[in-house]
Design a protein around this nucleic acid. Structure first.
Length: 776
RNA sequence: GCGCGCGUAGCUCAGCUGGUCAGAGCGUCUCGCUUACACCGAGAAGGCCCCUGGUUCGAGUCCAGGCGCGCGCACCA
């Protein structure tokens, strides 16, 4: 053995040894001592990294913590399965790809659906193995033979089945509802995908004249004057004495000269602005709700292209929102309706990816009726069926669950799982879908340039079904509510037939699922599609370990979907780790340039050092600052282990414990006792997810007890033995402590401990990774 | 607005159900190249555990209030 530990010479070799042993696959794990069988399944489903991205430090932390748990459980004799995967990460990936296109001066909208999908598929395929290789370099002991990709056909099928079940149970619906629209990405987003940013804005005070008393006005305040074109009421608080006598009266909407009513609604704050609100159900979430309560008309004046629609009136139609705002303020001013404007600071919703201001608008989307699912999840946590390791996150979870709103699961993007909904547009179908759309002017957009010649008109001067389908495939959006049907097995190449009329004149919903709708099903979808028997054996899984930042996005959805679709909780425990920050506690981000490539750290210091550094200071709940010092400290520790082992092994060559009865000294008794206590503590700490406590105990015992005291003591007794028996006893102790320490350290630092184990004379197992854990 | 959390050595943080809890790692200083390791060893300095009250025989540890900081959720136009 060399005087310095060189991870480069060890890590690849050891990982190969593990892979060749087959022990990553729980089916191949050896029996325990005395031929005892392993009985207890222990499963962790890995949060699948995005297929197109290299790992960052957060992934390294995830991999380290989960590998520690898995290796620990494997050593304890469980049937340990760590199931890896890769995530197509719908919107995330499409955004990354769009940026790539933008750099090349292109836009996603230049490509048709199939081409774009294929391009992203190829892009992802190119990078798909990167993350996997990197996880291996970190020492991840997952069962690669069970690895799944979120777009695997068998996974997609399960996602479809769940969707159908939700639909059949009335828990999923399509409807015009107010959604968060990102004008840049041209898709709706869920509430979670909207971030809020403070912004300096203006508040405009406008007067709306009362009908019949045109010299009287009601004053409203708004930050978005352009939406007034779509107003369908003015609302006041029912308790507001100032306006009580006005409720039910009509006002004349300036610029539009449309009569709208004054309604009373609880949602209006007495204190804010003038206490009277203009109500635009089509472009504001609160207003939408007010509109529902008072059966108000929904007038969409802003289109998905971020321009004013025809409903905004001839003066404004076609203007961009910002232009329209400017013109409207001017017009209000010149016509005497503008009272004043004042600076105003408030928070506005922005797209969490691009930061563009979200345009709330009414749109036909698919929603999950979430309350019933949420109630079961809340109950599960209350009853302890799912246990949060940290009380803090349990509170946050319950708070969110209790206030949850219906979940928009459709996205107007192509990268993802296409919603398995079909519409029959056969002329004779009882659904009458054809009738509902045949007069849609957008169908005839191409009439003028006549690119379809006569094809788009059938015999009676009506559009042919083929033409409609072609226009739809080109990206035409239909806003009519059509009658859908769901087909779990249908596909574009194998179109399903309409259940009402058996026709083949059907087209598929263009939207794809929110990625989290499918990843919410990941625990059971994976286990139902790996090996027969896996689901029965491993579900519910033991623990979900992931970052707190996806508590709502993912963990919450998995709990809800798990109960709903698989009948049981997806995992018994939830452990959420903190976010890695840089040494100044700043969030790591590419734009700040403070990211750390974990693989570069591994190259420099070894995987064990990185792992140990990540875990050593990691208090469970909070974010953790990362610095290279910490890694270097652990690199030194690795070297310490290496040298202690080097000393031990060179002094154990002539030692055979077989049949030897040691006669311990007081010092021997003490270190053995301490070993026991340390093993007990580490066991308890790992059972409680106190990784840092466990790591520090192992570190401290090895360095300051074993090295500083025990080895120094034993050294003398071996070099200058008082008696042959005492020398052998010293060797016995040395051998024992080294071996047990290696086991205790193995979950944290698997490479170096395995390498040393392999070099120990007469090691008994094929690998340290399947040794038996010292319980203390 | 509602909710969550944090303030302990220069830095990053541990201190679980109150009584060797005043700790660790890094950093700093002194002394040692001793035959496993200088990526080492021996030793040292450093803290009214944010403030103020309270509960208790006893409080970083529990309670209340205050100050400072961070975060999550949210339909104040």
């Amino acid at each position: 053995m060399e005087a310095q530990y060189d991870p480069k010479k060890v890590e690849d070799k050891i990982y190969r040894l593990w892979e060749e042993s087959g022990f990553f696959n729980p089916d191949n794990l050896p029996d325990l001592k005395d031929g005892q069988k392993r009985t207890k399944p222990y499963c962790i489903i890995m949060p699948p990294p995005n297929a197109n991205e290299a790992l960052h430090l957060g992934h390294a932390l995830m991999a380290t913590l989960e590998d520690i748990l898995i290796r620990y459980r494997r050593l304890r004799g469980d049937i340990a399965l760590w199931l890896p995967g890769a995530d197509h990460a719908g919107f995330e990936t499409q955004v990354v790809f769009e940026r790539k296109l933008e750099k090349q001066g292109k836009s996603r909208f230049q490509f048709d659906r199939e081409t774009l999908y294929k391009m992203i598929w190829d892009y992802v395929e190119e990078n798909k193995n990167v993350a996997q290789d990197q996880l291996k370099r970190l020492g991840a002991s997952c069962d690669w033979s069970r690895s799944k990709f979120t777009l695997d056909p068998d996974i997609v099928k399960i996602v479809y089945q769940t969707f159908k079940k939700l639909y059949d149970d009335g828990l999923v619906y399509r409807g015009p509802r107010i959604i968060n629209w990102c004008p840049k990405h041209q898709t709706g987003l869920s509430d979670l995908e909207v971030k809020y940013k403070d912004r300096e804005d203006k508040l405009w005070y406008i007067k709306y004249p009362l009908v019949g008393e045109l010299d009287k006005f009601i004053e409203v305040a708004t930050t978005r004057p352009e939406t007034m074109l779509g107003d369908s009421a003015v609302a006041v608080n029912p308790e507001d004495e100032r306006y009580k006598n006005l409720v039910g009266k009509k006002v004349l909407l300036p610029l539009m000269n449309r009569e709208i009513t004054i309604v009373a609604d609880e949602a209006v704050e007495l204190k804010f602005g003038t206490g009277a609100v203009k109500v635009t159900p089509a472009h504001d979430a609160t207003d939408f709700d007010i509109g529902q309560r008072h059966s108000l008309e929904t007038i969409s004046v802003i289109g998905q292209d971020d321009k004013m629609t025809a409903a905004a009136g001839a003066d404004y139609a076609g203007l961009k929102v910002a232009e329209a705002r400017k013109k409207i303020v001017e017009d209000l001013q010149s016509q005497g309706f503008l009272i004043k404007e004042e600076p105003y600071r408030h928070s506005v919703g922005v797209c969490y990816k691009c930061g563009r201001v979200i345009e709330p608008m009414v749109s036909e989307q698919w929603f999950v009726k979430i309350k019933p699912l949420a109630e079961r999840a809340i109950e599960a946590v209350n009853k302890g069926e799912v246990k949060f390791i940290s009380a803090k996150y349990e509170k946050i979870f319950q708070h969110w669950m209790g206030n949850i709103r219906d979940w928009n699961i459709s996205r107007q993007i192509v990268w993802g799982i296409r919603i398995p909904v079909w519409y029959c547009i056969d002329k004779n179908c009882p659904s009458e879908n054809y009738k509902k759309i045949k007069d849609n002017p957008a169908l005839f957009k191409d009439k003028e340039d006549d690119c379809f010649g006569t094809v788009h008109h059938g015999e009676e001067g009506e559009p042919s079904v083929e033409h409609i389908i072609r226009r739809l495939n080109e990206g035409l959006t239909i806003n009519e509510s059509l009658k859908p049907f769901i087909s779990v097995s249908g596909s574009l190449s194998n179109k399903p037939t309409c259940p009402d009329c058996n026709s083949n004149n059907v087209f598929q919903e263009k939207d794809t699922f929110d990625t989290w709708f499918s990843s919410g099903q990941w625990p059971f979808a994976t286990l139902q599609t790996t090996k027969a028997g896996d689901f029965a054996k491993f579900y519910p899984t033991a623990v979900m370990e992931t970052g707190w930042d996806i508590l709502f996005f993912w963990v919450a959805r998995m709990i809800m979907m798990g109960f709903y679709a698989a009948g049981k909780e997806p995992f018994k425990q939830v452990y959420l780790h903190g976010l890695i920050r840089d040494k100044d506690k700043q969030k790591m981000s590419k734009s700040k340039g403070n990211t750390v490539n974990p693989l570069a750290v591994v190259d420099e210091n070894g995987a064990d050092a990185l792992r140990m550094a990540l875990v050593f200071n990691a208090a469970s709940d909070s974010d953790l600052p990362f610095s290279e010092d910490k890694v270097i400290a652990q690199k030194r520790f690795a070297n310490k282990i290496w040298n202690a082992a080097r000393f031990s092994i060179s002094n154990l060559e002539d030692f055979d414990p077989q049949g030897f009865e040691p006669k311990f000294t007081a010092a021997d008794e003490e270190i053995l006792k301490e070993l026991d206590a340390t093993a007990k503590k580490i066991t308890k700490d790992l059972d409680n997810f106190d990784f840092h406590e466990a790591a520090q105990s192992a570190y401290h015992f090895f360095w300051h007890s074993f090295c500083d005291k025990c080895i120094e003591d034993v050294k003398k007794r071996i070099k200058e033995p008082a008696s042959e028996e005492d020398k052998k006893t010293a060797q016995f102790v040395l051998n024992k402590i080294l071996l047990e320490s290696l086991k205790l350290l193995h979950p944290f630092m698997p490479f170096i401990t395995e390498e040393i184990y392999q070099q120990i004379p007469r090691h008994t197992k094929k690998a340290l990774m399947v040794e038996e854990w010292p319980m203390g």
